[in-house]
Design a protein around this nucleic acid. Structure first.
Lengths: 229, 229
DNA sequence: CGTCACCTTGATGGATATCAAAAACCGTGG
DNA sequence: CCACGGTTTTTGATATCCATCAAGGTGACG
């Protein structure tokens, strides 16, 4: 907790922040808890937005099929993050596929229920607005990163963002939740696989990071932030 | 109206959709109308989010300063679009600078007032959620475009998006609102200036577009969509 | 201890950024 | 109406960065 990176879903969970006890109970009351083994999917790209999820434990990967038909990673979501919030509140088909990359538990709300709650409780509505706003903000930042930074800076940004979103404090320093592969990082940066490997390798030689199979430990976040610009 | 591209802010204006007459009157009542000469700015990047704007007529450009200190174009907003919605509802500093690129009129709401309206009227809250959700959706799409499309496809995407957002029907076909320069297009695509010029030039030779100073007329939207993938 | 998925490293070519310079365009004022 | 100045755009030549291809390594897990 001290200097540990926080999951992006702040506090007890995005939807519940600043709710009075009664309201929180109502929101919790209509939720159901679900356990997913690794590899299971919450929903597929294009599905109607029938449910809203909040990750409780584990790790969820959002992917998209590109024009060539391959799945490419869009982002990861960890404990406290609202998965599907944009689609559900906006009543759009899910723009991505959500998959548990390891054993995961999630809270689920039916679309109709959650929309009703939002209409009835301004506090819940505010939380929804905040969650969606945060998402937009992140996307704008990522877009700016990609358009005006060099490759190395982009990789640094993505690594730092991953640490902040799905990081944990390991013994040697902040550590990105496993399994996040080089391929995932490359797809999130718009850089090829191999180049990411080379850049990370270079950083490891300089002692900025420690690498493992589907694992990245950040030893010098300050210098990384510098590289990210 | 027939086959004309619609501004992204749908109908009479994002905030007002599906409001009963009384509510609409209240929302309109606390708004003020402002006229801006070309070149004036609504707000600067980093400013506290003191006001929400809805473009009524004209054209607004959102720019961001990149690490090198230059202003780069993020997007344009035309009639019906809510400018600053993410920042105001999320209570974040504005992530970009908004400038009128020509004579423009906007509706303005004070942050406190609009937050109050959102808390009081679920219908307004729903509209806010929709507006912010649309924004997220667009950013996700743009991000995906950039990471998994080739350069030419990216330029095509941006041109088509501009037509949809700030396009008008000219005599020869859909036409992007002026002044949108090649430089703007290049910054929105993450491609250099010169390359955009070459690509557009090529399209003009094939009869897909007609070019002018700070002007792009789309002659063959269908083929462009094909190129965009 | 074998197999599979993930990762690294090297060599190569090509797409695109960059630099440089000239041309087209527009508004302005004579 | 025309000449002028600044901005935008085009076009060409060059260099560089990165994607791609190929092959070998390394760790995890049954």
């Amino acid at each position: 907790m001290d200097q540990a990176p926080q999951p992006s879903g702040q506090g007890p969970g995005a939807l519940f922040t600043d709710l009075d006890q009664a309201t929180a109970a109502v929101v919790m009351g209509v939720a159901t808890l679900r356990h997913l083994p690794a590899g299971n999917t919450l929903f597929h790209q294009g599905d109607p937005p029938s449910q809203l999820f909040q990750v409780s434990t584990g790790l969820v990967r959002l992917t998209r099929v590109n024009p060539e038909g391959e799945q490419t990673t869009l982002r990861f979501m960890g404990p406290g993050d609202l998965v599907g919030c944009v689609a559900v509140f906006r009543r759009f088909p899910f723009p991505a596929t959500a998959t548990a990359t390891r054993a995961t538990t999630v809270l689920c709300w039916g679309a109709a229920q959650i929309l009703d709650l939002v209409r009835r409780y301004p506090a819940v509505s505010a939380n929804a607005l905040n969650a969606v706003g945060d998402r937009t903000r992140e996307m704008v930042d990522r877009l700016a990163d990609i358009t005006d930074k060099g490759i190395e800076a982009r990789v640094a940004s993505v690594v730092l963002r991953l640490v902040a979103q799905v990081g944990r404090n390991g013994p040697k320093g902040p550590e990105i939740a496993t399994p996040v592969t080089r391929k995932d990082v490359s797809e999130m940066t718009g850089v090829s696989y191999f180049t990411v490997s080379r850049i990370l390798g270079g950083w490891q030689r300089q002692g900025l990071v420690r690498l493992g199979r589907a694992r990245i430990i950040v030893l010098d976040p300050y210098r990384l932030a510098q590289i990210a610009g």
